[in-house]
Nucleic acid binder design. Structure first.
Length: 441
RNA sequence: CGGGAAGUAGCUCAGCCUGGUAGAGCACUACGUUCGGGACGUAGGGGCCGGAGGUUCAAAUCCUCUCUUCCCGACCA
């Protein structure tokens, strides 16, 4: 993408309404614009990041055997009455009346909708287990939206729902998601800590939150240092095998947020205890028959008996992750995107637009990058060098190639790695190999 | 939902106390000088001062109501 053509409105100054760093940088780097309290428009660069995160989530869900569906944003009040949550959910649920005076709502979650589908369509134990997910916009009318996209009212969430015949099987479904979540966050360059959690209003008796560490996180986190040293499950993970012991290697380590943490009773020695701050980016629950019972999700078992399905639900805040990653990865100059989620992997800076040699070199590099399938943003604007450097750092492009008259004369370009702030020179004729390396990322 | 703050140009803000023809910097347009880490000069464009009432000869400024946004706390992917 040529920067001159791109809609990427970066700001030198910080809009006054943004107080936390990720929100400020998202506005400054031209990722989003606010439309109303807790409601955002995603601009091209921000939307690219959002889609990349979404795609990683999708791939790991698919790998773990979940199947993607797409449920509506607008739901009927009817199923929510069956589960009893229409009245319980309170003002966080945005209620809507249609032209026929039917009560509708903008879905804050989808247990009711999916359970209703499963209740209607699945009648035999032979069709189990099932795990269905969707990545869809949710709306929760938060009293106080804040922190930009981290606590918006409208947010993109991956939510899925597992349906099993018995506890044993449901536990396996839960474990699969536990592993899939660890992998998902690791692929985004995040260190995620699973933490035993309160089940809250969703109910149930088995639940973990996934917290990523960031200095600016909203809650204090205490955990066993060993947890931070565990390698995330690799590509070899076999989701059909028993995962209990793998899950336990993670869940057996101490981890607690400040409201659960009691220094008096903490089982970890002080020198082994990590105190940090974190942001919740996922939450998984097992809750048995809480929804399947009232919504009639029942199948006939092998012995001919009717069995009420065992359910779990699993959520990842996709739009929240955009902010969370920035909280975890930035510096004074701007965002430092992990390569896997960067809007563009490579930034190409033409220091002297209009100079025949610079232009020619850049056009060649730009074409080569594109031909290799490397996502590149080419700053071909006729503006001063400082502005281009500042923009690339602000937007957080992981690899930056600088082409200027001085270097071109020597047949060299400068390579900068954003995350390390290290620069080196590379010969123009060695760029082919460098590009091939980027293409392999 | 309790407590607090703020709405003036795209952004950051001054002006308001003490009423009298709406300002600065950045951004934008044109021209010129510049040009390897957010240059400079000259000339421009851009505002129903959040909205509605009221007071007054006169309201960005004073009063009332209202809308919006932000912050702190309780609650949450």
């Amino acid at each position: 993408m040529r920067r001159s053509q791109l809609f990427l409105p970066t700001l030198k100054e910080t809009p006054s309404e943004a107080k936390i760093v990720s929100h400020r940088l998202m506005l400054r780097a031209g990722l989003v614009r606010q439309s109303a309290a807790g409601i955002y428009t995603w601009l091209p660069a921000g939307y690219r990041v959002l889609r990349k995160i979404e795609q990683i989530v999708r791939e790991e869900q698919d790998r773990a055997g979940a199947q993607e569906v797409l449920m509506p944003t607008i739901q009927s009040a009817e199923v929510w009455r069956k589960s009893g949550r229409y009245d319980d959910y309170g003002k966080e649920m945005l209620r809507i009346v249609d032209r026929h005076d039917r009560e509708m709502l903008f879905g804050p979650t989808a247990e009711e909708v999916i359970t209703d589908i499963v209740a209607n369509e699945i009648n035999s134990y032979r069709d189990l287990p099932k795990n269905l997910y969707n990545i869809q916009w949710k709306f929760r009318d938060e009293v106080r939206p804040r922190f930009g996209v981290m606590r918006g009212r409208e947010f993109l969430m991956k939510d899925n729902y597992s349906f099993d015949l018995d506890y044993e099987s449901a536990r396996h479904s839960y474990n699969k998601m536990f592993i899939a979540y660890l992998r998902t966050y690791a692929r985004m360059g995040l260190q995620a800590i699973p933490m035993a959690a309160d089940t809250g209003p969703i109910g149930g008796d088995l639940s973990h939150e996934f917290i990523i560490l960031a200095e600016t996180g909203e809650s204090a986190v205490f955990c066993d240092k060993a947890l931070l040293e565990l390698p995330p499950p690799g590509d070899e993970v076999d989701y059909s095998a028993d995962l209990q012991s793998t899950v336990e290697t993670w869940s057996d380590h101490y981890a607690a947020t400040d409201e659960m943490h009691d220094p008096e009773k903490c089982p970890i020695d002080a020198d082994q205890l990590v105190t940090a701050r974190g942001i919740e980016v996922g939450h998984i629950f097992y809750f048995g028959t809480k929804y399947s019972e009232p919504l009639g999700a029942v199948v006939q078992g092998p012995d001919g008996q009717q069995v009420t399905l065992e359910m779990g639900s699993y959520g990842i805040g996709v739009s929240r992750l955009v902010g969370a990653i920035i909280e975890a990865s930035h510096d004074d100059a701007g965002i430092i995107w992990p390569e896997a989620v960067a809007p563009w992997l490579v930034g190409l800076i033409n220091l002297k637009v209009g100079d025949a040699e610079c232009d020619a070199a850049c056009e060649k590099i730009y074409a080569d990058l594109q031909a290799a399938g490397v996502e590149v943003i080419y700053d071909d604007r006729d503006v001063r060098a400082g502005g281009k450097f500042a923009d690339m750092d602000l937007v957080g492009i992981p690899w930056q190639l600088t082409v200027g008259p001085r270097g071109v004369k020597d047949g060299k370009v400068e390579v900068k790695r954003r995350s390390a702030d290290e620069k080196s020179e590379i010969a123009l004729d060695a760029l082919g190999a460098w590009i091939a390396e980027r293409a392999a990322l």
